[in-house]
């Protein structure tokens, strides 16, 4: 029993980490007032780049870096279009998803069926060998720890540092921030690229740790769940952890129930995370007071300095 529970928990962590990474990145983007709906596309490009780089060099960490840069690069395109050229953020984000998925498919053609490089779990002698607790706390791969470090860092940055204050200010009123002499577009570029890098990492995690191989459309809508998680968290970093692990759990539960042969159609089980996403969003959005208090007031609005 313990063995089984342990393996379920370990799977949940691997299933939740990409959601956590993508969502925490998008949270920063949205805190600065930009809505980037292209998370799915950036994840796909991150996944294929990470896979390819790791395959060519044989080093999974090179893959992680490649995923990070690929995501950031694609988000830079989004930034150029929406911030410099002031195009519509929703339309551009959707286009970015299509572009990312298509590009990933093209780049990945040669990788289909290739055995991937696996991002190894760490092994701390002694600690990792503690029964049950050890593998959970001290036996994860580096990216799991990194994802929590990013959440802690973002939380500290947003609410304790001047840089975070500026990000929140830009998201709350770009006109006021501009009037005080801050570069709204500059701040947003940095946030968008941070979000892109996180999405890229999330994609890389899928193709290096979750299922170390390349399959087209392997992101399977996780980018959209990450977007929903940001709303779920009402733009507070630590709530992203709760949300990501909740959805990770539901996904894994779907598989586990199937394995136990419980008589629920498998399609329904695979749809479960998405159904729950919709339900949770509906429930949360009913509380309008809560939603408005934290929603960046300028979210999705284009900024053109007057004059």
């Amino acid at each position: 029993m313990n063995e089984q529970l342990l393996s379920v928990i370990l799977t949940i962590i691997t299933a939740s980490t990409p959601l956590l990474l993508a969502a925490i990145g998008e949270l920063v983007v949205e805190r600065s007032g930009v809505l980037n709906l292209g998370v799915e596309g950036m994840m796909a490009v991150g996944a294929v780049s990470g896979f390819g780089a790791a395959l060519l060099t044989g080093n999974p960490y090179v893959g992680v870096l490649a995923a990070l840069f690929a995501g950031a690069l694609l988000s830079l395109l989004f930034g150029f279009l929406t911030l410099t050229m002031v195009s519509n953020q929703v339309a551009t984000g959707l286009a970015l998803t299509l572009l990312g998925l298509g590009t990933a498919g093209l780049m990945g053609e040669a990788f289909v069926g290739q055995p991937g490089v696996h991002l190894e779990r760490l092994h701390v002698p002694g600690l990792s060998d503690i029964p049950f607790i050890g593998p959970i706390l001290f036996g994860q791969d580096l990216m799991v720890y990194l994802s929590f470090a990013i959440v802690a860092g973002v939380s500290y940055l947003l609410f304790r540092s001047k840089a975070g204050l500026i990000i929140r200010a830009v998201g709350d009123s770009h006109q006021s921030a501009h009037a005080l002499g801050y570069s709204v577009v500059g701040v947003r570029y940095l946030c968008v690229m941070f979000g892109g890098a996180c999405s890229g990492l999330a994609g890389g995690y899928l193709s290096l740790a979750y299922t170390p191989q390349w399959v087209e459309n392997m992101t399977a809508g996780r980018g959209w769940i990450a977007l929903a998680l940001v709303v779920f968290s009402s733009w507070l970093p630590w709530r992203i952890v709760v949300g990501a692990y909740l959805f990770g759990t539901i996904t894994v539960m779907g598989f586990s129930l199937q394995a136990y042969g419980i008589g629920i159609p498998s399609q329904l089980l695979s749809a479960l995370p998405y159904v729950v996403t919709i339900l949770v969003l509906v429930l949360i959005s009913r509380n309008r007071a809560l939603m408005r208090a934290n929603t960046p007031a300028c979210l999705g609005q284009p900024f053109v300095p007057d004059r």
């Binding site: 929140r168 200010a169 709350d172 006021s176 960046p296």
Partner: peptide, 8 residues
């Protein structure tokens, strides 16, 4: 027109 941030 104040240059203020409502949420802060």
């Amino acid at each position: 027109h104040f240059s203020l941030f409502d949420a802060l």
